[in-house]
Amino acid sequence: MKRFVLLLLLILTGSIVFAQEVKVNDNVYEIKKDLIFINDVDVTNTLSEEEKSKILAAFEQKKLDMAKAKLSKEKIDKAEKAQERAEKQQKKAEKKQKKAEKEMKQKVKAQTNYDKAIKTYEDATTKYEKLKKKGKLSPIDEEKWLEKIEKLNSKIEKTKAKLK
């Protein structure tokens, strides 16, 4: 929508610049170089010096207004470009932040999993030692416990690797 409005403004400004028409005292004058025309008829010599100066002054004022309009359009364009750059930078920063948050979440989860694996390993080792001390382990049970403890140890190694 903004681009459409700017394009329309540019077209209107361009048509005004090339027309070089000035309206003074309900008459529309067209200026070409130093000649003044009404309806494609040269009236430069028929106008008084005062009228000529009025028309040329109005023409110069119109040129100034158009220059100001062009300058303000350029400022608007620059401001829009700056705003677009700022929006892109903001989106980039938001994306970076989301990525950082995701990484932090993953690190926290990995730490939690690591802590859980260590606790499970320690609990299993403690229970195995108790049962072994009391002599309540058969050779098959002892083999199962050692296998379980080895699996828990490998789980610790895996979670530790994910921490890094």
Rank of each mutant, 00 (worst) to 15 (best):
E30H: 14
E30L: 03
K32E: 12
K33A: 10
I36S: 08
I36T: 08
N39D: 08
N39G: 01
N39E: 15
V43K: 14
V43I: 13
L47Y: 01
L47W: 01
L47N: 06
S48Q: 13
S48E: 14
E49A: 14
E49W: 05
E51M: 14
K52R: 14
K52F: 00
K52D: 03
K54V: 02
L56D: 04
A57K: 09
A57T: 05
A57W: 00
A57D: 07
A58Y: 09
A58S: 13
A58D: 13
F59V: 05
Q61D: 11
Q61M: 03
K62M: 08
D65M: 15
D65S: 08
M66D: 11
M66T: 06
A67F: 08
A67C: 14
K68W: 02
K70H: 13
S72L: 13
S72C: 09
S72Q: 12
E74D: 15
E74C: 02
E74Q: 10
K75P: 00
K75F: 01
K78L: 02
K78Y: 02
A79G: 04
E80K: 01
A82I: 02
Q83A: 04
E87I: 03
K88C: 02
K88E: 11
Q90D: 05
E94M: 05
E94L: 15
E94W: 09
K95M: 14
K96D: 10
K98F: 09
A100T: 06
E101L: 07
E103F: 08
K105T: 11
K107S: 04
V108F: 10
K109N: 10
A110P: 02
T112D: 15
N113R: 10
D115S: 07
K116M: 12
K119A: 05
T120Y: 15
T120V: 10
T120W: 09
